[in-house]
Every structure is written in structure tokens, then in C-alpha cells.
């Protein structure tokens, strides 16, 4: 198992290399540059800037230079946020995004599994239909609607919770709910579906025929089987949640890294975009590996060697 994990991580290196290369050249293909402004800079100033950031060299030379720095763990300076390196920006923002995403994921998993299980056990009853209705609502209403609504209702009108910011436990409630809501919905639906299937399976019938208590049947025999499809969804979902959400961070004014991706891309902040791409790619690779290892841990028929 350990050997498998190491091999998988080694196998991820070429993948990451390809992603980095592709992203690097794609950025350069996009028209414009980091120092284009509505009022064009003086030619001399621009030339200086380009020289400082090595933008006067041919693209392939810039690429090699970037790779060289990357190999030493240097993500380079940000072109737009002067005085900050990309490491500093991501280093400050990532803990916030991970905290926010992690809590949202946990909340979504807990509530989603419980709702999905209840709906499956009460299939085609009003309980089931209400869960489905809430789930459909959660998936269809976009977070740029939910976020300001929550902020308005609980932050402004009722003054129960801070409408924005990231400085106290209370201030985390609304962003976490906003981020978790669609995930609750998706997980509830997934669990409901696989749970219904698991409850119909022959081995659950065996458990019932042997007079095992209902709680044991549901939790021990049905839920574990029902979790498997959810876990494969959780890999990419966790990577997406933990690397920040542009909308939620912007509306609640949170200092996470989600914003950097969009702002960096719009401003042609090459190094910042590259840094974000690398973080997201690493998260996706790592979480997919975790999913596969979890699979093996939960299902004895899955073996890696």
C-alpha cells in the first residue's frame, strides 16, 4: 500500500510538469501583458519593468527560467501585488481557504450523509420528497445569490452574524454555509441513491433475515457500501473546495486564494496564476490518491500492490 502511494506520487510528477508547461504557454498566448494599463506607461518605464521581470527574453527562455526557480521552490514575485512574492500571497491566503473549505466539506459530509440516509430509509414519503426538494434547491440556486442573501438577512437585518470578514468564529458561519449548501445537496442525493441500492442488496436482506437490529443494518451494512460512490466524488470536490471560492471570498471579503486565480488571470499576473494552478493541481493529485487509498481501506476487494 505504501509502495503504491509512493509510486502514485512519483507518477504525478510528469502530470504536474505537463500542467505547468501547458498553463505557462497558454498564459503567454493570451493577448496583453501584466503592465498594460488604460494609460500606457512610458516606453522607458515599461522596458525597465520588462527587464526586471525577465519579460524581455524569448518565451522559451522565460519558461526555462521559471522552471529553474520552481525547482528551487521559488514561485517568483507577483507582477501586480508589488512587494509580495507569490509564495507570500498564497502562504497568507491558503490557510484561510483550507479552513473555510475544510469546514464546508465537513459540514456537507455530515448533513449530506444524514439527510441522504434518512431519505433512503423513508423512500417515496414526504420526508424523502422534502430532502430531494431541498437538495434540488441547493444545487440550482447559485452561490452568488445565496451569499448576498445570507449576508443581508443574518448580517444586516437580523444583525446576528457578521456580514463579512474573517476574524472571529462567528464570521465563518455564513461563508461556510454558503460554500457547503450545494455540496450538502449533491452528497445527500448521492448517498440517497446508493443507499437505496444498498438497502435492496442481497446481503442487507441476509442481515435482516438474521434479525440484526435496524441501526446495525443501516450503519454497518448499508452505509459503508453506500459511501463508496460518494468517496469518488469527494476527491475532486475536496480539491475544489480547499483551493478557495472566488464568489464566496469576494462577497464576504475573505483573504483566501480563490480571488487570486481570477484576478491574476485578468491582470496577466503570470506568476500568480502559475502558483495557483500548481496549488490546485497538487491538491487534485493528492486528493485523488487519498480517494483511491480510502477505497482500498473500505473495500477489501480493492487491492493495490
Amino acid at each position: 500500500m505504501l509502495g503504491y502511494a509512493v509510486r502514485r506520487l512519483l507518477g504525478a510528477i510528469p502530470t504536474l510538469f505537463l500542467i505547468i508547461t501547458f498553463a505557462f504557454f497558454l498564459m503567454r498566448v493570451a493577448p496583453g501583458g501584466p503592465f498594460d494599463r488604460e494609460r500606457t506607461l512610458e516606453a522607458k518605464v515599461l522596458e525597465n519593468l520588462n527587464r526586471v521581470f525577465h519579460l524581455d527574453k524569448p518565451v522559451w527562455e522565460q519558461y526555462l527560467y521559471y522552471l529553474g526557480n520552481l525547482a528551487r521552490g521559488d514561485l517568483g514575485p507577483s507582477f501586480i501585488y508589488r512587494d509580495f512574492s507569490v509564495q507570500q500571497l498564497l502562504g497568507n491566503g491558503l490557510p484561510v481557504s483550507i479552513q473555510l473549505g475544510g469546514m464546508a466539506l465537513l459540514v456537507a459530509l455530515l448533513i449530506g450523509s444524514v439527510l441522504g440516509t434518512i431519505a433512503a430509509l423513508r423512500q417515496n414519503s414526504w420526508v424523502d420528497y422534502s430532502v430531494i426538494a431541498v437538495a434540488t434547491f441547493g444545487i440550482t440556486v447559485p452561490n452568488f445569490v445565496v451569499a448576498p442573501l445570507l449576508s443581508l438577512i443574518f448580517g444586516v437585518w437580523l444583525s446576528l452574524l457578521p456580514a463579512g470578514g474573517w476574524n472571529s468564529p462567528e464570521s465563518m458561519v455564513l461563508p461556510v454555509i454558503t460554500l457547503a449548501l450545494p455540496q450538502v445537496a449533491i452528497i445527500a442525493r448521492l448517498i440517497r441513491g446508493s443507499m437505496i441500492e444498498a438497502l435492496r442488496s442481497d446481503h442487507v436482506r441476509t442481515a435482516r433475515a438474521y434479525g440484526l437490529p435496524q441501526r446495525m443494518i443501516v450503519i454497518v451494512h448499508a452505509l459503508r457500501a453506500a459511501c463508496l460512490p460518494v468517496i469518488s466524488y469527494l476527491g475532486p470536490a475536496a480539491a475544489a473546495l480547499l483551493t478557495g471560492s472566488v464568489v464566496v471570498e469576494t462577497i464576504f471579503g475573505l483573504p483566501g486564494i480563490g480571488r487570486y486565480f481570477v484576478q491574476g488571470a485578468l491582470n496577466r499576473d503570470y506568476t500568480l496564476v502559475m502558483g495557483t494552478v500548481i496549488i490546485i493541481a497538487v491538491f487534485v493529485v493528492v486528493f485523488n490518491l487519498i480517494v483511491d487509498l480510502l477505497y482500498a481501506a473500505l473495500d477489501p476487494r480493492v487491492r493495490y500492490d
Binding site: 442481497d202 446481503h203 441476509t206 442481515a207 438474521y210 434479525g211 451494512h221 459503508r224 473500505l298 476487494r301
Partner: peptide, 18 residues
């Protein structure tokens, strides 16, 4: 499961694979 017990057609699926 105690006084009246059952065995089924499909021994492949009647046991929990996990």
C-alpha cells in the same frame, strides 16, 4: 436468525463483501 433461519440462492451476493 435464531429460531427460523434462511439461506439464499446467491451465495455470491448474500454475504456482505466488505
Amino acid at each position: 436468525g435464531a429460531k427460523v433461519t434462511m439461506i439464499f440462492q446467491e451465495p455470491m451476493t448474500s454475504l456482505d463483501p466488505l
